[in-house]
Each structure stands twice: as C-alpha cells, then as structure tokens.
Design a protein around this nucleic acid. Structure first.
Lengths: 348, 348
DNA sequence: AGCTGGATAGCAAGCGCTTTCTATCGTGAG
DNA sequence: CTCACGATAGAAAGCGCTTGCTATCCAGCT
C-alpha cells in the first residue's frame, strides 16, 4: 500500500539502513549509492513515516508555539517571527522542522492540553507567548508541566510573559509595568488629572503589570487612587467601546483614557466619537503595543511600542538552539513610549 | 527514565494491552481495573508516546492549517475558527486533536514543504486557507501532493481558495470576482469614472479574481479599460501607501481608489491624507474583506464583508468529518458589499 | 605477498504502542 | 452439577525506522 523504507531499499538494491542514512545524512555513504537511493526515493514518491522515525530516534522536529488569540496581530506578529527563525535562517523551510502554532484562546485548560499534546509528540521546543493567567492552581500545574517538558529535553521559551522560576524555561519578559508608567507619566505631563483606565481581563499578568505602572505614575505624582476609574474587559474592540459608556457614567469629566492595548483603544475611540467627543481635543486616548494599524488610526494613536517581531525572533532562535539563553534565563524587553496625535493637553 | 506503558501496567498489575485499552476507551474494561490503571497513570505522571502510538495505530490526531500570513487577521480569523471546530464542539480541546497552524509566508516552496511535513506525520486532515499561486508548475506539484494526501486518507479542505479539480480536496471558495464587481458598481453608481486600482501580488487567484470583477463592472458600464490605473503590490499597508504616489502621478484627477484589501486601503488612506486629500470628499476609497479594524478607520471603510469566521468554521467541521462535503466538493461563499463612509459621490 | 586500517554496507535489536487472537473466569441454563 | 457463553485480561506479533556492532572490500604499507 504505502511505500516504506524497505521498498526504497529493494528498489535501490541496498539495505534499509543505508537508505535511512542517506536520508538523514549523518553517516558516510558512497556517492554512487546515495544517488541510487535518491532516485529510488523520487521514483517511488517515498515520504518518510514521521511517527516511526520519531519513535526510533526518540526525537522529533516539532516545535510548538502557543498563542492566546491567533486572530490578534499581537500574537500573529510574534508567532510569525518565531516561526521564521525556527524554519531556518533565511526564512526558508530549511531545517525541516515543523513549527506550528497552537491557539489556546486564553483558556488555561487548553494551554495545558496543548502542552500535553506537544509533550506526547516529544516536541523539540515550545514557545509560549503572551501574558499568563494568575491563578495559583493553574500556575502550579503549568509550572509542573514545564518542568517535565524541560526535563525531557524540550527547550521551553516564554515570550512576552514573566519568568516561571524553577521550570527550566527561559523567559523574554516585556516591561509592561514600565510601559504603563511611561504612558501615564506622559498624560500627567500634558496636564491630565482625570484619567480613565480600561484594563484587560482580570488575573492576567499583562493586565496587572500595565495597571500597576499606571498606579505608580499616579501616586508618584501625588494623585489619589480612584479605583472607580478603572474598568476591566477583554482585549478586544467591543470591550473598549463598552468601557467608555461605563467610565463616562462614573465621571463625565474625564480628559484622558488609557486602554489595555491598541485594539481596546480603537474601540474606545469609536465610542467617544459616537458621543460627539473629539480626540484629542475633548479626550486624549492612549493604547499599548503599537500594532500596525495604530499609526493609521485617526488620529494616529499614542501608544507604547513593543518590539514584537524582534522578541519573537529571539525567542525562536533560543528555541532552535541558535542563540544562548539570556543570563539567568531571563531578559526584560522594554517598550518605547510612542507619542502621536491622540494625546494632547486637556482643554481648559 | 521516561515512564512507559509497561511501567503503568506493572504499577497497576495488569498487562500493557489493558492500559492501552483504558486509555483509548475502545474496548470493555472492568470498572475496578480501569480505576486502578487510571490512578497508576496519575501517580506515574504518564504521558502517552505520540509517535509510538501513531506508528502502531497508523493514524494520528494532527490537523494542519496552512495560512499565507499569520500576522494578518484575514488568516488569523479563519485559522481561529478552523481550530476551534477541530478541537471539539464547545471550543474546548475535547477530541484531543492537535490542530496546528503553519505559516507559509506566501511561499510556494514552504507550502509544499509544510504539506510534506504534514504528510510525514500522517495528519488526519489539512485545511489550506487563502488564495493560491497561479503558476502552472507549482499548481501541478501542489495538485499531485494533495492527491497523495487524500489517497492516504487525509481529509483536505481548501478555504477561501478556488477548487483543485481531481485532487479529492473539498473547497469553500470566496466569490472574489462578484465582490470586486459589486464594489466597482457601487463607485460607478456614485458617479465615479476615474478609478485607480491597487491590486495584490501578481499570480495569485485572489488578486486576479478581484481585478476581473473590477474590469467586468467597468466594461459593463461601457468604460474603456485603462491598464495604467492598476498597480500591483503586496497585501500590506506599505503597498497601499506607495501605490497612491504612483497612481496620482499617472492620473492626478482620480476620484476613487479600490484597494486589494482593507490593509492596503488603510495604507492608501494614509498616503492620501498626507497629500492633503480628504476622504471621501476629494477621493473615495474602498477596501475588501472587512477586517475588524476597518469599521474603526476614519472614515469607516466601505468594503466587501467576507464571512471569514463562518467559512473557517465550516472548513473545520468538514475537516473534522462532522459535516458532509458540499455537493460536488465545492461551495461558493459570497461576500457582501458594505457601504460606509469612505465612499461618496465625486466632487463635482 | 601478507597485513592493517579506513571506508562502506548490512544485520538485527529495539523504540513504545495497538490489536488480533487466545485464555480464563464466572454465571445462568439445562 | 455440568456446559456454554459473555465478559475480561493477557500474549505476542508487528507498525516503520534508527543505530550500534559487525562484516566486507580494497588501498597502502612493510
């Protein structure tokens, strides 16, 4: 039925061992023999049986990339960068490694499920992108799983997520706190004092760190905490849109809005415009991430630029073993305050 | 070192066969025994060896999703929909199927490479999204590969791509031609006569079909073909930005621009604004796809809405074998003209 | 001419799991 | 009290490939 190594061997009049060695190129084979084998492979349209090969060799060429939301360019950009590094320098699918991305949808269970599936496949490496869930139970389960993966020889790299101590995983963490602080500092410097904050989902490191940066800036400026000016929601447009209604109800005189990310910020802008408020004349708006569309928004969005592509590429190189892990297994990647047209001094 | 089935069997005082049967649940096992096995599995932290299992069973639970650009929400949305259908109803990772997305970057070689890699893994199904490359040689190679995949029992579904006859692959094709025509008809109805067209890359079915729709509308209206008003570029923002310079040089009096997709349209808008041209007052702009950010653009973009999520979900269900293939193996998915604020009658 | 060693090729033993076929046990029927 | 049969469990034969070890061949030496 399907062509096997033995068929190729028979056709080339050599042993299966020789065919295997030609295919893997890790053992000397006479040029004439190699050519004979190669043409037999071509003639028979032979395709290696991956499972059999992985079983015998006890390794696989699968590399998994976990993302929270594949439809969000934030993850798409990182995943794309990881993948092109994995698939070999030059962007060509060189190393014959199968870099695949797995969409967890932000669900802790699916995150674990995918990790198990990858562990089953004896994946060569795993890159986990984006913020983590802050739930003690889940964190413990995840930590244990990562530990087992690294123990089994799978390289694990966290990209855009805080380190997971004692798991053997390397981490490239974004400085979300610093970015959040820079953004609010900027608004304060412009003279804003009534700032609404549209945070991401509860229990996510990204959400908490950005929010903490915001609070740091506020208290450094001697401003009182006003918890009612923070609302939580998903990292999507609808969340930003709705949040504006809530925020304006709680304080109709807000002069600035900081959003969890650019997508949320855009939703907020839409809601503001719908209410006849002009940006930045009536209300300033700031985002986070600097996704590609943010520069094209009207007005162009003030945000914190995160080097998503670079971080992903580096994570990919570490996962591929082409770059050493950062010292201590952890590196902090900083964002850069990017001021554009959506923020301005408050009226008045 | 690593825990195997035999270890679990020994711990549970049963044979390996029994453990396998408990894990697969496809053979009667006494309740008491099953529990004993299950606790041994838990105690030993046993994880099935995927390659060994796939080898013995001659099947795998891998499902591949090919996309041209994972950082583009156009693909992200479809991939996300496919994946959630594959991973089991309810969006939970139920079926223990490993749905993974592979980023070809639009390269024909990588497309083929990934398909081979998936074939190696004896994937259960493959979903290929987005337009195809129109190169005879590549098309033949791709067709042959698809044929082999389907012959080997892998279900192949094309999503947002024209059918591949005689390959055994099912297809959900977008009506790009109809959408392109509707868009240009709309512009003509508004009174535009000098319309620039920013097309996608050469040799892609999507590019050609959308452009053909445009030409159909033009000639149906009795307008002469003006090839110099069409420029090609990538499906990205930069392409739209640059194209405006070129188009305006060729005809400074254009009153409308049709872009290959929304991303390109946004780039075009930015370029237009930079030149001091107002949209839609001075120039109307239309996109294609209706990506999430298009409604938030300023002005909100007129475009053709493609049911990306629904199409992806359907493709996923077909790939999972939970929905029959469309009759004849092909279904056409239509877009819907969505008129917003970026198009208006020309000044006059 | 006999010997040594490098270069190739082959043998065969698994890798860990699934599954067919067979063995065993307990129970209701005769 | 025996027999047959349904329900379970085990034995063992692979699945297709990799790789350590062994066998062979021939050139270069002594």
């Amino acid at each position: 039925m399907t062509v096997t190594l033995a068929d190729v061997a028979a056709r080339a009049r050599v042993s299966a061992a020789t065919v295997s060695r030609v295919l893997n190129g890790n053992y000397p084979v006479a040029e004439a023999t190699r050519e004979r084998v190669l043409s037999a492979v071509a003639e028979l349209d032979y395709v290696l049986n991956g499972p059999a090969s992985s079983l015998a060799a006890a390794t696989s060429d699968l590399v998994g990339i976990l993302v929270n939301d594949i439809a969000d360019p934030f993850f798409g950009i990182m995943a794309s960068a990881v993948q092109s590094e994995i698939s070999g320098p030059g962007g060509r699918a060189g190393g014959e490694r199968l870099a695949v991305v797995c969409n967890t949808g932000g669900s802790p269970e699916r995150e674990l499920t995918y990790l198990t599936l990858l562990q089953r496949q004896r994946a060569a490496a795993v890159v986990i992108t984006g913020g983590a869930i802050e739930d003690a139970e889940h964190a413990a389960a995840l930590g244990a799983k990562l530990r087992r993966l690294t123990d089994a020889g799978t390289r694990v790299v966290l990209c855009g997520r805080p380190p997971a101590p004692d798991t053997g995983a390397a981490a490239l963490a974004f400085d979300n706190r610093g970015g959040g602080r820079a953004l609010t500092d900027h608004l304060l410097a412009l003279g804003h004092r009534r700032i609404g904050y549209i945070a991401g989902p509860h229990e996510r490191t990204t959400t908490r760190h950005r929010l903490e940066g915001h609070h740091e800036a506020l208290s450094a400026a001697g401003l009182p905490a006003r918890p009612e000016l923070t609302v939580h929601g998903a990292y999507d447009r609808a969340s930003g849109f709705q949040a504006i209604g809530e925020l304006l109800r709680r304080d109709p005189d807000l002069t600035a809005i900081v959003a969890a990310n650019d997508t949320v910020a855009l939703g907020a802008c839409a809601a503001l415009r719908e209410r006849g408020l002009r940006i930045p004349d009536d209300v300033s708006v700031a985002g986070f991430d600097d996704l590609p569309f943010s520069v094209d928004a009207t007005p162009a969005l003030t945000t914190v630029r995160l080097p998503l592509h670079d971080a992903g590429a580096r994570a990919g190189r570490i996962a591929a073993g082409r770059e050493p892990e950062p010292p201590g297994g952890v590196a902090v990647v900083s964002g850069e305050l990017t001021v554009r047209d959506s923020t301005a001094p408050p009226r008045g």
